[in-house]
Design a protein around this nucleic acid. Sequence first.
DNA 1: GCTAACGTATTT
DNA 2: AAATACGTTAGC
Length: 761
Amino acid sequence: MALSLSADEEDYDSESEQQQAANRPKPKIGAVAAVKLPSNRSASGARRRRTRCRKCEACLRTECGECHFCKDMKKFGGPGRMKQSCIMRQCIAPVLPHTAVCVVCGEAGKEDTLDEDKFNVMLMECSICNEIVHPNCLKVKDASGVVNDELPNCWECPKCNYAGKSGKQKRGPGFKYASNLPGSLLREQKAVKEEGESMSMSATKRKPERDETPRYRPEEREPLHRHPPVLSPSTLPRPRPEDKLRKKRKLFDDDEEEDFSMRKKIKTEEDQDEEVDVEEKDFFRHVLERRSRVDDPEEAEYRNDEDAKTSPPLKTPLLDSDQSHCSSPRAGPSSEGGSEPQEKGPRPKLRRKRRLPNKELSKELSKALNQEIQKTEDCLANENRQPLKVEPESENEEPRRGFRNGSDLLGGERPHLRTKEMNGTPWELRHFYPSQITPLGFNRSSPGPRPLPPLSPPKCVQMERHVIRPPPISPPPDRLPLVAGKTHTVQREIWMKIFGHLTHRELCVCMGVCKTWNRWCCDKRLWTRIDLNRCKSITPLMLSGIIRRQPLSLDLSWTNISKKQLSWLINRLPGLRVLLLSGCSWMAVSALCTSSCPLLRTLDVQWVEGLKDAQMRDLLSPPTDNRPGQLDNRCKLRNVVDLRLAGLDITDASLRLIIRHMPLLSKLDLSYCNHVNDQSVNLLTAAGTTTRDSLTEINLSVCNRVTDHSLTFFKRCGSICLIDLRYCKQVTKTACEQFIAEMSVSVQFGLKEDKLLQKLS
DNA sequence: GCTAACGTATTT
DNA sequence: AAATACGTTAGC
């Protein structure tokens, strides 16, 4: 796979030597070495340093001012020694410098010309020999290059390819991707790559994915009723794990055991299709799983989902390459090049997928996003987000035991949950109320039995095997290419309207049709909400799929996502509005402490194990080491409007923080919070608090310490529309009626249910 | 000439 | 292995 790291060893040998000399602080011979660099450039070895594309989302952002590297910068009061780009601004697709020229003809790239065949006149840098050439200038015409679709203007040139050289550095040069960042996934990828992978990676050999001790073991079972009675992905015909692994290896590995040089030779279009589809299919498998669920009321709200429940399982074969009759030349999900319908026949060997001009759309999306952020964050200067860095996975060795054999359908919550209480309520008691009592759906996840999250967590190894793909940069093709160079008359936007009526499941099927559809169906407009609630495990593939689709709403509830994964994700979802993490571990949720989600409106952390006052403080506290005047010391979650804290052991201490740091808070779910009492309500509604006026809905159901007295406090709330006191033992119906009577002077309330007060509009 | 920051070496 | 340091390149 193509994860090359910026500092990959051998490829840089020659340069390394120079740099070794150059960089070594003691003998100051840097200048000499530096002068040498360019002279070598054309010979294999020295490489052109890449530079920002200036177009990607990352490049367009401002510095976050909070990351490690920002803090080092002089402008943020740091010493300026590290000289690294802001983490949020690491370019997704670093380009060759403008000064780069063809080693043969000495001229620059000419892809901006009107020339139809841009590929042959653009500069291509070989990731093996580092030569930069116009493909047209190459004499070796019968050999073919292998275009690296991860990096602009990068390939394995025909010479190297012909010579059977293998590129360790599939990613191509210059692909830094935050490899030197603390916590960067790439580090692990590298590490694992170095240690060599085995096809038959055993579970024991895998690195544990989670940062913490796993919360459950495979033998733990999920309660039967947690599983939808619908088809499960595991019933789908799918490649055997080993087949898939093989395929992945073929496509992505850069270890060259066996016949690597053969394998890597030429990638046909079919290969690409396969590559695309395998990945997307797998992503969808999970999504479909979600879409097929029927026990979540919001499923229906999201999309009228009948078909998701009833339609036949997605057939793997349908997505296989042979189905791609479409002549759309390129356009994998990862490849921008796909936008151009004019791939010419005689160069089928070139696995050409790289970006081509016309970046209007992506630019626009970027712009829109930025504007949005700007809008929401008017007064905030420094919140930024990480660009997309994607690294799918292979997930192969995770045969989805649970769903398949049904054994996991049987009994058992996680022991620790069953055995002991959370927030003082014995776990068993929490099962008392069926999910239906959840009021008005704003308590999104039902306080029903805590489903046990997925089985074994995703493994780092899985991530590491996968290529890291930047998101498509150029827009997808506007029309569907047909055979003989023609295009379909119907334009993309029309297609998009049609696709808009499809379920995710159906989109998935469409993605298997051809590359153009594949690309179109991945449009983020079609994926504003991605639901992986209770997904067995969050795999790197899913992560990359999510990033690619840039959802506004992401449900990861009751998954065993790890901190690193979550952190990685949210850093790459700058537009995320809704994040549902109920039932996840605190360890995972703590990713929110270090990442910021400026646009996040809804945060669901109900039933998060281990989330108490101290953790709440970490979550809500502004960065501690701010430098005056420079950094934003507001809460990272300050724009949260809807906060779901059901089932947490939090006290007034947390509420004070919430009051202080979430000025926009409108909906608050504190159900099943046994420490919440009248004083808490008093706090929330006290004079001078923002919550007093901002709160519109509050859920205090099953808060046994709340009494009638709380109702008098709620009279102060100017905007309150819904007060859920159901199952509060100390709240009487009489008090509710009295509340209604007293409020009726100004606002008419009614009892929608016993102790469920709702404003009548 | 200046700033940003890439890519690797060195230190922790 | 991760964090840090820094020579040097790229852009303006």
